[in-house]
Design a protein around this nucleic acid. Sequence first.
RNA 1: CGGGGCAUAGCGCAGCCCGGUAGCGCAUCUGCUUUGGGAGCAGAGGGUCGCAGGUUCGAAUCCUGCUGCCCCGACCA
Length: 475
Amino acid sequence: MGHRHHRALTARLVFLPQPLLVCGRVSRVLPRRGLMRLSRYFLPILRETPKEAEIVSHRLMLRAGMIRQEAAGIYAWLPLGLKVLNKITDIIREEQNRAGAVELLMPTIQPAELWRESGRYDAYGKEMLRISDRHEREMLFGPTNEEMVTEIFRAYVKSYKDLPLNLYHLQWKFRDEIRPRFGTMRSREFLMKDAYSFDLDQAGARHAYNRMFVAYLRTFARMGLKAIPMRADTGPIGGDLSHEFIILADTGESEVFCHQDYLGFAVPPADTDFEDAAGLQGLVDHWTSRYAATSEMHDAAAFEAVDAASRVSARGIEVGHIFYFGTKYSAPMGATVTGPDGQERAVHMGSYGIGPSRLAAALIEAGHDDDGIIWPDEIAPFHVMLLDLKTGDGATGAACDTLYKALTLRGLDVLHDDRDERAGAKFATADLIGIPWQVLVGPKGLASGKVELKRRATGERELLSIEEAVARIAG
RNA sequence: CGGGGCAUAGCGCAGCCCGGUAGCGCAUCUGCUUUGGGAGCAGAGGGUCGCAGGUUCGAAUCCUGCUGCCCCGACCA
């Protein structure tokens, strides 16, 4: 291992950006951005809808140049789509970290051996993509990571003093669905945040479960979504520790029933104490106090007991799923710790999933109109789009440059449409890709020193000076 | 995996029934005119008609097989 390698590595490190701070808008945005001129960007928008796309999110993701299908249920994420995916994972990471989970990264390819230990290698069926390497060793493309994370845990953790522990990662998974559909909503390859908790006993596991429960409430709320926890089937383990987080969307895949009150429940604040077991339990109790069920778990009689005015029956999309499964993997795989009493025992585990690639589609299902996508501010690939309505005019270009500098200095992500296109085409593009703020810079307005600020979600427009527009957007 | 459908230019489609050497709109390129809600005119480029066989003087078109993709259902984050 040479000297040479070492030196090359050092030289390269010099050019790496400073480590990003975890919090704050500016630190997240600044190091990544170059000058975003649409004429130099890669945004292959489609004017017509490809015929294979059935649901609105799939149509819009293709039209907005976010994704490209490479095979059934397998997609390339183009620049705009990737920016959205990254915004989603940024929020997920912040909330996982806040709740005390620790990030690592496990591989996509796993040895079959691990899955034989848990007994799932044969049980999983054809959904698992099985492959073999050049030595004919049986491998698989991971559909989930319980086995592997349990293997990692058992290799190092031996004492109850190291608990509780929650390890998570964001990694691509593959499930060879019989029938992938709905674009990235139900793809074969998909990104998943999966967290795994390890505790000494069931009480500890419940606290771990509650931490994730509250983290999920915050995560989805930050994305502008109303996610409602609904009791899910716990399978052979039983108990009440499994919830699906469902967002309501008219075009949702499944029918859901819940109490109106959920739509108004307060989301736990950022300074929630995740170590306070009793406090968390109170929050979870509150958020499970009303009726809420997917069609599989629906109890018509119980729903009828809710007063008629408060009954909400709607369509929903599952965006997260958490569950406790006890010693299902730790016992067969020998993931044990020694307790305070000197006894060795299998740890109690839970797992907690969110699908960011599915969320990207779900967010569009929940936010769009006839003209295109309507991104929530926290998720939008760019915060602001500058529309130079007369490129080559000089004055409009100069005004756009001024706006660009002022907005980026305030930590905002700006896309400048400097293409040599007519105004109408720029309006259509901006509406299609759903940037929350549009600044229309045209000769008419500039004549009186004004630009027009348009809010994508509401269509509201205001004539403002450049300074006023910047102030309004930066809020 | 069962049932149905599609495959012709980057995208959307026509042509196929009735075989004769490929067309329309949008997009792309050039020029001129236009310029606040996907502009107009003129011109240009771009296709092994999914793949492989077969029938025929001749196949996008008829026949056989294969592959890919989509939709409905069962399954799933």
